[in-house]
Design a protein around this nucleic acid. Structure first.
Lengths: 200, 200
DNA sequence: CGGAGTGGATTC
DNA sequence: GAATCCACTCCG
């Protein structure tokens, strides 16, 4: 085998102390004694794999499916993203706090910053939570993502009544003409840089 | 594919009209669209597959296993036939009535006859039931199989009291010297025939 | 329906 | 020929 690959696998395993290797030996059949190698990640939270928008398979294109039975018990399928949502806890995004992506060596990426206009809302909701909350909303929601439209003081005092569970835990944002203009400028600038890079 | 095999499969299915094939398509999950194929026997009683001595796997040698955990939660295994028996209904063998083996084409075998000495006992217990009852007892019981030793009239009148649930629903049989002699003769005769057959 | 475990094809 | 990948079966 390629020695570079061997080495990188070794480092991948021993340096970060995050990945655990297991050799599974086949016990019966024509291939007795063959070894199947499995790697798994020790730091994985047990509920993490269940919660969107965390990727659940190798393919990001996999879609949830809802089974709907009509009265004569035939089956209809609905491949839309909507109807399959389970009821959620009001503040369920809080369980995503502190999760962070890492590269293959187990080195964590830096946290991401949101635009200043996005303010957390609700009791004990911090900057730490809203990026997860917004990202999740954009990923799973079928409706426009607007943020919480209630008055901030009522939201903090009585979240059970005023908090909209279908919206992320940020204060509603008004997008102004100016914001759109600024975004357009960014796109133009990015295209210019790309053009330049391709010329070289 | 081998056409002879294909054909026999087809007959197995269509000629006897006994076996019904159903393709069940998985509707959700990672394996959406996969097909599980199920065959079932239209005349099959739904509880039949759960009751010994009906063969539950391809291997007649498969044995029940009891898992016993000690206090420090290590596992002991016990391969004896005994301890794993569940409590049974007093007349549970009656549910085996009318079941009969068939060949692969679905043609039923003739019923088997028991020696005249075996008489059914208990309310509503007929010839039809006792072969199943005796066969089951021989198959699953760890104790000697003697039959019911109570007086026939009390057994019929008050089975809840006098019927021994660990014994099959036949009257007790006394094996006489004469019976043993006759069986020995049969064995000798069978051996003689085998010898002869091997000479040819 | 998911997961363990295997046979067999494919890649290196 | 070994390592790897993948499809499939079986079972709970």
């Amino acid at each position: 085998m390629n020695s570079i690959l061997d080495r990188s696998k070794y480092e991948f395993n021993s340096q970060s102390k995050r990945w655990h290797k297991e050799d599974i030996i086949r016990k019966t059949g024509m291939s007795v004694g063959k070894v199947d190698v499995v790697y798994y990640n020790r730091s994985m939270r047990s509920d993490a794999s269940l919660v969107p928008p965390i990727r659940q398979t190798a393919s990001i294109f996999k879609q949830p499916v809802t089974v709907i039975k009509t009265q004569d018990s035939k089956v209809k399928s609905d491949y839309k993203n909507g109807n399959q949502e389970k009821p959620k806890q009001l503040m369920w995004e809080k369980r995503l706090e502190g999760l962070r992506a890492c590269d293959v060596d187990g080195v964590e990426f830096d946290g991401m910053e949101l635009p200043k206009g996005l303010k957390p809302v609700g009791p004990n909701v911090t900057e730490e939570t809203i990026i997860q909350s917004v990202a999740t909303a954009l990923h799973v929601s079928t409706q426009p993502v607007t943020g919480q439209t209630g008055v901030k003081s009522s939201l903090e005092k009585n979240p059970g009544v005023f908090l909209d569970p279908k919206q992320p835990l940020v204060q509603a944002v008004n997008i102004l003409e100016d914001d759109i203009k600024r975004q357009e400028d960014k796109v133009v600038e990015a295209r210019r840089k790309l053009q330049e890079a391709l010329r070289m």
